[in-house]
Amino acid sequence: MAEEAKDPGWVKDLSHETFQACLAFYDKNPVIGSIGFLLLLSSVPLIIVLRYMTKMKRVDNQLIVDKYRLELEASAKKMKRKSSKAAVRAASTTTTAGG
């Protein structure tokens, strides 16, 4: 850091050279340059819209998965109740048979 503060000449040269090279490149083929410019302009609304859409998608997915889990728990409870009823019935039959 201290050396850069002392002698920033090479940074200046480097930035100048790269900027000149970029300008020359875009002068040579303006199609790529205009595509980049339009993408730079359009990136902000695109990012906003896509973020909104991905958030909506995540919320929907979470909702459906939670619903499915609730249904699974409900069906497991029902199965348990059924099995317990069957067990009670079996126990009663065995006791009556034994008595």
């Binding site: 205009s34 695109l46 909506m56 998608k57």
Partner: peptide, 27 residues
Amino acid sequence: EITLPIVIVSLLFYQAYLYGKAVYMRR
């Protein structure tokens, strides 16, 4: 040189619009 970039960027926007429409229709 003018139409090609506009076509490419508009295709990108169209794709984003299709994605948004799919999300909306799904919901």
